[in-house]
Simulated assay, not measured.
Amino acid sequence: MAETRLVLMRHGQSLGNEANLFTGWNDLDLSASGHEEARKAGKLMREHGFLFDAAHCSMLKRTIHTLHHCLDELNQAWLPEYRSWRLNERHYGALQGLNKDDTIARYGREQVQQWRRGFDVTPPEVTLDSPHYPGNDPRYASIPVSDLPRAESLATTMKRVLPYWQDTLLPSLRQGQSLLVITHGTVMRALIGHLNGLDPEDARTLEIPTGTPLVYESDETGTPRHAHSLDSSDVRIHS
């Protein structure tokens, strides 16, 4: 593949998706359907002749396992892999691990919808002694405490994600590398919103399917310009 390409993909269906939970940074694995979605995505990319120079994912096993399925199907398990907390899902604070329907019954649909999709609305924070506080997880021990979220809105998630785009992903693309990035729904909204110049209202309402590669073709500078889904799923983005 001569072109420089960026493929963004949300992980396959997780156990949290399957159980209708607020998952966030909670480290749940893929469901049986999610494993199959990941394998199918890798096979689809192989059939389209995709070759990558490096792969990126979050620190959570649902993206790591999705990535490994894809690389196995692509016959590119040898690729360099990079994992970053900046690609983690939005931290849902004290909502993490709760069933969405139960949360609606307790707080009301309007309030829960604001927590889920309000651009700058932050859910209740986790306490410092909570198992959901990243400071209590050894994988984040090297991250400054001031950077560790106790809850995030879409706006603060974007502020966390965009430095990884600017400092890591974009320079690699501009060097002519093609990248596979496996991440999460809210991170996809942040990246697509930035790449496509969407206003916050459009970005927050994007519906991102699991296990569906979104392909950006790059211009002569390596900057992604045009996006298309690799199958018939509609990601509802602007050109």
Rank of each mutant, 00 (worst) to 15 (best):
S33T: 11
T4F: 11
H184V: 01
L170V: 02
R236T: 15
A54T: 08
P124S: 13
E89T: 02
G42Y: 00
T4K: 07
P138M: 03
A141G: 05
W78C: 06
T221Y: 15
A151S: 06
D219N: 12
L179I: 04
Q111E: 05
I64M: 07
R62V: 00
T183G: 01
L6D: 11
R46A: 11
R86I: 04
L67N: 00
S229Q: 03
R189N: 01
P80S: 02
T23H: 12
L195Y: 02
H184E: 00
Y216W: 15
M1V: 05
R116L: 13
P144L: 12
D167R: 07
P200Y: 15
R160L: 14
I182F: 00
G16P: 06
N88F: 00
P213G: 03
R106M: 08
E37Q: 14
S142H: 14
D234R: 05
E37K: 00
Q111M: 05
S218A: 11
Y92A: 02
L79K: 05
D202R: 08
R139N: 04
K43V: 08
E125R: 04
T157N: 09
A54D: 12
G197T: 09
W78S: 07
T127D: 10
Q76R: 11
A151G: 05
N136G: 11
L154Y: 05
R116A: 12
N196W: 11
A94G: 10
Q166H: 08
L198A: 09
W115E: 05
S31N: 07
P224W: 07
R189K: 06
L148Y: 05
P224A: 07
Q76D: 11
K100W: 08
S58A: 11
E207C: 10
I192M: 13
D27S: 10
M158N: 04
M45K: 06
P224N: 07
H91N: 06
P163C: 12
R46G: 04
W78Q: 10
V181T: 12
A32G: 09
R83G: 05
D27M: 13
N196T: 08
G93T: 02
F119I: 05
L60C: 10
T122N: 08
L148R: 06
E37P: 00
F22V: 11
L74P: 00
